[in-house]
């Protein structure tokens, strides 16, 4: 049944469940200090090896954002060999970020060399990469790349988009089946809409059932007492 928005204040949500959702968001985005503070303030149980995994992702994340893309690629390869090998689109986008860094640093010769040795091979595989490469190459036609009509390629939005894609790919590998982000979204939707939801993950198994009786305010949303969040970051090797 749909909940009348006027009745939202009548809904009693288990605070523990809300805390779990918040924690998953913080972990997803590598907010290490925030998640640690949150855990200590709320008295929640700390997931087993979440710090180590988050630390790895955070390092990759920051290397990519701060212009050290090659290091990020290397660290991702150390995490698992096949994450990028099986994802040409993401690998191409990451390499293009490095090309953009060289262009912005005005290292024209290095940029040309890099494009020829690292980006060109992609165009031999598929036609779609050819058009992307041409777009990046047009940045070279300007002393100041900002003047180029393709200037969005050197903007933070594009970089953030690629890095987010990398982060999700790593998380996807960690969970194998679903990204935490997806679960996070679904959980929020489930709570708001009171839709019964079942999730059956490889290393997770939990059910969410909701019941809301807005008549007398006596009933509350109920969850299982524990959610094995640590499993999300501790996939069996």
């Amino acid at each position: 049944m749909d909940v009348d928005p006027c009745q939202y204040e009548q809904i009693a949500i288990n605070e523990k469940d809300v805390n779990n959702i918040i924690l998953s968001y913080l972990i997803h985005n590598c907010y290490k200090e925030s998640s640690e503070s949150f855990i200590s303030c709320t008295g929640m149980k700390q997931p087993a090896d979440h710090l180590e995994n988050m630390e790895k992702r955070k390092r990759i994340f920051h290397h990519a954002l701060e212009g050290n893309v090659l290091k990020a690629i290397e660290l991702t390869g150390q995490l698992a060999q096949d994450i990028l090998e099986n994802n040409n689109d993401l690998l191409f986008d990451l390499l293009s970020l490095h090309f953009v860094d060289l262009v912005c640093s005005k290292e024209w010769a290095e940029a040309l060399e890099f494009a020829q040795t690292k980006l060109s091979p992609f165009s031999v595989k598929e036609q779609k990469y050819m058009e992307k490469i041409e777009g990046f190459m047009s940045l070279l036609a300007y002393e100041n790349p900002v003047e180029c009509p393709m200037f969005h390629l050197i903007g933070l939005d594009y970089r953030q988009q690629v890095v987010d894609s990398l982060n999700q790919t790593i998380l996807g590998w960690l969970t194998s089946l679903y990204s935490v982000y997806l679960i996070y979204i679904l959980l929020q939707i489930s709570i708001l809409c009171s839709i019964p939801a079942k999730y059956d993950l490889q290393s997770l198994s939990f059910c969410l059932f909701f019941s809301v009786d807005v008549g007398d305010g006596q009933h509350t949303l109920t969850f299982p007492s524990t959610l094995p969040w640590s499993g999300l970051y501790n996939r069996p090797q």
Partner: peptide, 28 residues
């Protein structure tokens, strides 16, 4: 070639972006 492109081709980029992109792709 790169220098020539900056001097003479870039002014046409806004109106002939596709052509400029292909020419810059030739640099590879």
């Amino acid at each position: 070639a790169l220098h020539y492109a900056r001097m003479h081709l870039s002014p046409f980029a806004t109106s002939h972006m596709t052509d400029i992109q292909k020419l810059m792709g030739c640099l590879l």
